[in-house]
Design a binder for these strands. Structure first.
Length: 825
DNA sequence: GGAGGTGACGTACC
DNA sequence: ACCGGTACGTCACCTCC
């Protein structure tokens, strides 16, 4: 029997002490397929140099006799093989050790303390990753599998009758085939509403479910049905509502179950309530409950159904493409779908009036509708990440950038015959985290002012191109200088100034990164020629991976961590930026500013053509694949002074291009922790100044705004300050306004969660005494008067003062009041 | 008891 | 534990005189 399938979900089970892989996927007839594949687990020991054949064969005998007696299984070394491999770029002899059960890899490795062994590797890799590496059954590709169909079979303790699949096949051979079209997954979105925010503390009032041609809200509240409530199903109590949820999931049988923050809220809540009522919560196609992984980032895994928490994917990966200031469902849906959540004032279900229930149901349904639509919107990105990195969707949607890149690297090492380096253990991580920081990039102090006629050059993928051009990595770092080697600029590391040398023999990591850069170019072109969501996602995915390489090398949890490499890369970054600044100045331009990989300068008398020719010349002088590009020409730009000190502020500027489009960096306008009034005013002031080249109209606007503020004509909405709560309240050493407000919210039984934006405004002091800002902070619905002086001195003026200073206009001019002279007292 | 420095904190840039 | 260094600015907190 032979059939086609696309792998979606990977799991494994033990049978007679051995590991078997259980892949759940779909075929072209849209049937759900389970493929069971064997897996021969193995890891490596790398031998010390110069061992003779006899020694090696003696060692193999010793290794082959290893058995694990105290294990719950009978695990032993099944066989060994000797291979010529590479490890960290060096040729090594290694023994491949096959064992009965991968889960005992650690225990067996612990017994391998023979003096002939240099080190043991690849027993710390996730079993599924190891399987994909070994057999190349990569997620979301098409495969042809031949083997025995299991139907009411005794095989694997009757697994085929337990699993809810259309076909279960025991694989003999699996072959990748050319894919016809991308899979269109069956997605089911869900969302719950509960009475208490604390998980399990209240009752779940309703659950919404949305899939293709399917919209439902399940509830147990006794509400009089109105004609608009067709989508609502009523149940006798919370327990039977949860049962109905499980039944619906089983009936729809989706490939993907998607929620928004469902790892942290919806699924744990459902589990807690199911446990409370002793309701069966077996969502898996194997009739098992979801498996919850605890930790800082909890996750919920369901056998056979890929559970995706969209919030997780957006937070770690997709947020860089978004403008949204918060990553809540409402704002993200608004940006990506131009659709919003339904406005509904959340309250305890006991306080909801008869008429309000319909709105609450609609609200709940809409959340699932948005989640469903977002899942489709982001599907190309999840698909492409999964295919490029070759890891399953569940992992891809939860991994950080470093994890993704590391997986990409691991899945691309075979070509280099490399044995995979170990993950740092606890002690090592501790050591790495304690080390002092390496010096970072260079930022040029700008001279404050308004400038005309500018251009910006920047290096394309600077850190990554340095890694490739100078072959920088853990494995290419030389202990001693060699004749043919790349030399880093002098850098300070561990208190001493030093220079590092890297081999000119290409290392596997820089090579893999180079391939990534080539793919980036290829996919970018592909997208240009054929713009669609898939080509766009593909191009973006490699772009993100390419950009993450330097961060990965300096990340304490990385397998290929290398502090020397990181310090060297940053040394080159500083060198090239400084050199460029100098060259630009020497060529008769005037450099205004530079940060890390960029340089901004005025053209003076020079023409654009001259600038472009000059760029060509600069590029011809750059080594390796390093390259600079013209970011753009700008009509005007403004740099301001710091509020403390009278020199130019870094990372704070505004530019206007020739089409009149503004590019604002660092200013309060782009900071979400400033009130809308200050942000909008600053934005308009910058716009006027950059368009007009002078401050006259802007000054008028400021004076008008100040007058409005003073006469309380500004709505309170514009004065709300939003600050994120970053940690549990009790961990704050310094009690700032937003912490005070969060505490008050808690007292009023309002939901307070880590990560949420705390909103408040500043009211007039109650007494004459000078009160702390936090004493004057109020919740948005508290009815006090806003503090005019606070908003003037702490929001409006700080936001615009330094801009006007460029035009020699002082604060007193701004306030529009004649100054009190000393003589008047 | 007010001035000024410093640390904690949040946010942005690259 | 889940990319890191540079930088700005606010507010609370502490010390000093």
């Amino acid at each position: 029997m032979e059939l086609k399938f696309i792998p979606l979900d990977y799991g494994y089970f033990d049978y007679q002490g051995r590991n078997f892989i259980q892949i759940i996927g779909r075929n072209e007839k849209n049937q759900r397929i389970c493929v069971i594949d064997s897996f021969e687990p193995f890891f490596w020991v790398i031998l010390k140099e110069n061992l003779n054949e006899k020694k090696i064969s003696e060692l193999r005998k010793k290794i082959e006799s290893i058995k694990l007696e105290d294990s719950e299984r009978r695990t032993k070394v099944e066989k060994t093989e000797v291979h010529e491999k590479n490890f960290l770029g060096k040729k090594v002899k290694a023994i491949k050790i096959f064992i009965t059960n991968y889960k005992d890899g650690h225990a067996i490795a612990d017994k391998l303390d023979f003096p002939e062994i240099e080190c043991r590797r690849e027993y710390d890799i996730n079993l599924i990753t190891k399987y994909i590496l070994d057999k190349k059954i990569t997620p979301l590709d098409y495969f042809k599998v031949s083997g025995e169909i299991l139907s009411n079979s005794e095989e694997f303790s009757g697994i085929d009758s337990i699993l809810d699949v259309d076909i279960c096949i025991k694989a003999e051979k699996i072959q990748k085939i050319e894919h016809e079209k991308e899979i269109e997954p069956k997605i089911l979105a869900f969302d719950i509403e509960a009475d208490e925010f604390e998980i399990g503390q209240g009752e779940i009032v309703m659950i919404s479910l949305v899939s293709k041609n399917f919209q439902k809200v399940l509830t147990w509240k006794k509400v009089a049905r109105t004609k608009d409530m067709d989508f609502v199903e009523f149940y006798k109590d919370e327990a039977s509502m949860i049962e109905a949820f499980v039944e619906n999931v089983k009936k729809i049988s989706p490939d993907i179950l998607v929620g928004y923050f469902s790892d942290g809220f919806d699924l744990p809540y459902l589990r807690a309530r199911a446990e409370f009522h002793k309701v069966d919560f077996s969502l898996g196609i194997d009739n098992k409950k979801p498996v919850f992984a605890r930790g800082k980032y909890p996750s919920a895994r369901i056998t056979g159904i890929v559970h995706i928490d969209l919030f997780r994917f957006i937070e770690t990966i997709y947020s860089q493409y978004l403008k949204s200031e918060t990553l809540g469902l409402d704002e993200v849906a608004s940006e990506l779908l131009s659709e919003n959540k339904i406005d509904f004032d959340h309250k305890h279900s006991s306080k909801i009036s008869e008429e309000e229930w319909l709105d609450y149901f609609k609200y709940n349904l809409q959340d699932s509708v948005l989640t469903y639509k977002l899942a489709f919107k982001l599907w190309p990105d999840m698909l492409e990440f999964s295919k490029i990195i070759q890891e399953p969707l569940f992992e891809i949607t939860r991994a950080g950038m470093s994890q993704l890149l590391e997986n990409y690297i691991m899945h691309n090492l075979e070509k280099y015959n490399e044995i995979i380096e170990k993950r740092p253990i606890y002690d090592e991580i501790g050591k790495r985290k304690q080390r002092e920081k390496v010096e970072g990039a260079f930022v040029l102090v700008p001279k404050a002012g308004l400038y005309e006629n500018l251009a910006i050059f920047d290096f394309t993928s600077m850190h990554t191109s340095i890694i490739i051009s100078f072959n920088i990595s853990k494995s290419t770092l030389l202990e001693n200088k060699e004749k043919e080697s790349y030399e880093s600029p002098e850098v300070e590391l561990e208190g001493k100034k030093q220079v590092f040398h890297f081999s000119q023999k290409p290392g596997f990591l820089p090579e893999i990164v180079k391939e990534l850069v080539d793919k980036r170019k290829k996919f970018k072109k592909e997208y240009k020629n054929d713009p669609n969501p898939i080509t766009k996602a593909r191009s973006n995915a490699v772009k993100l991976l390419t950009a993450a390489v330097h961060g990965y090398i300096g990340f304490f949890g990385a397998r290929y961590y290398s502090l020397e490499s990181s310090a060297s890369i940053l040394g080159f970054v500083r060198k090239f930026n400084k050199e460029t600044i100098e060259k630009v100045n020497n060529a008769g331009y005037h450099v205004i500013y530079g940060d890390t990989d960029s340089v901004a300068f005025t053209l003076g008398e020079k023409t654009k053509e001259q600038v472009k020719d000059f760029l060509k010349k600069l590029n011809s002088e750059l080594p390796g694949i390093m390259e600079m590009e013209l970011e753009d020409f700008y009509k005007r730009g403004i740099w301001v002074t710091k509020r403390t000190g009278d020199f130019g502020a870094k990372k704070k500027y505004a530019l206007i291009d020739e089409k009149g489009k503004l590019k604002i960096r660092g200013f309060e306008t782009v900071r979400r922790d400033w009130c809308a009034l200050a942000r909008e005013l600053q934005d308009e002031v910058l716009d006027m100044i950059l368009k007009e080249g002078n401050a006259e109209n802007a000054l008028k606007l400021v004076k008008e705004t100040i007058e409005k503020l003073k006469s309380r004509k500004i709505s309170k909405e514009k004065l709300i300050i939003k600050t994120q709560l970053k940690k549990p309240l009790e961990e704050y050493k310094s009690i700032s306004p937003h912490v005070t407000i969060a505490k008050r919210m808690l007292e009023q039984d309002m939901p307070v969660n880590i990560g949420m934006l705390i909103k408040f405004y500043i009211a007039e002091p109650k007494s004459n005494k000078k009160e702390l800002v936090r004493a004057r902070a109020r919740l948005p619905d508290e009815p006090d008067d806003y503090d005019i002086d606070y908003y003037l001195d702490h929001q409006i003026l700080p936001a615009i003062e330094n801009i006007f200073e460029v035009f020699h206009i002082s604060v007193d001019d701004l306030k529009g009041k004649k100054q009190m002279k000393l003589g008047e007292f």
